[in-house]
Each structure stands twice: as C-alpha cells, then as structure tokens.
C-alpha cells in the first residue's frame, strides 16, 4: 500500500535548496532578484512570513494566478522547507 515514491519524497521534503532552486527562475538566484524587479526578493525574509504568504496564495486568500498555481504544487512540509531555506539566505549576494 505504501508507495515507494511518497517515502522518497518525504525523506527529501527537508531539502529546501532542492525545492527552492526553480523559484530562482523568477525571483533570482537564492531569491535575490535584479534591482527594481516586480518580482519580490525572498532571501533573508522571516520564515513564518513566507509560509503565511505561500499558504495564502495556496488557499486563494491572496490573489495571484501565477503564485496560486505554484503554491498549490507544495505540501505543508515542503512549504516549511522552502520558507526556512529562503529565510537562511543572505539578502545580498557575496562579493
């Protein structure tokens, strides 16, 4: 009954870097977008704030078709992992 896939996925849900990597496609490497972007920066923001935002996008409470779709693609553990990883990134890139 237990799917091997969900076991693998659960093992790796804590791997924030792996989950966060594709977010850089809009939000910049490690959540640092270029200057003056309409895409918000994610690096160094409070983890609870990011989790709250992703949950609000997922439920539709916060309106954005793009972020709504994306937030619905992650479960609670993954949202927690993503938020924790972005919170731990420096908002400025290394020189």
């Amino acid at each position: 009954m237990c799917l091997p896939g969900s076991a693998v996925a659960a093992d790796h849900a804590g791997d924030g870097a792996r989950l966060a990597a594709p977010c850089a496609g809009c939000h910049g490497t490690a959540g640092r977008p270029p200057a003056d972007s309409v895409m918000p920066g994610l690096a160094g923001r409070d983890a609870a704030e990011l989790t709250g935002l992703l949950e609000a996008y997922r439920s539709g409470e916060r309106a954005s078709e793009e972020m709504g779709r994306i937030a619905r693609g992650y479960n609670d553990a993954e949202i927690a992992a993503l938020s924790a990883w972005f919170a731990a990134q420096s908002p400025r890139s290394e020189p």
């Binding site: 490497t29 977008p33 270029p34 895409m39 992650y74």
Partner: peptide
C-alpha cells in the same frame, strides 16, 4: 504535474506583461 498546480491565466492583463519582462531579467541573471 503536482495536482492543482497547472493552469493558464483566466484573462490577459497588464500586470502579467510587466512580470514577463522582469521574469526574463531574473532568469538571465540566474
């Protein structure tokens, strides 16, 4: 596809046009 995560804009909008250019700038940088 993760269930519920796939979709298309319900209508065209100016906001998405702005995002489109800044998407390109962000991913070029990435």
């Amino acid at each position: 596809v993760r269930p519920g995560s796939s979709g298309v804009s319900s209508q065209r909008s100016a906001a998405v046009a702005l995002q489109a250019w800044d998407w390109a700038r962000a991913i070029w940088q990435d």
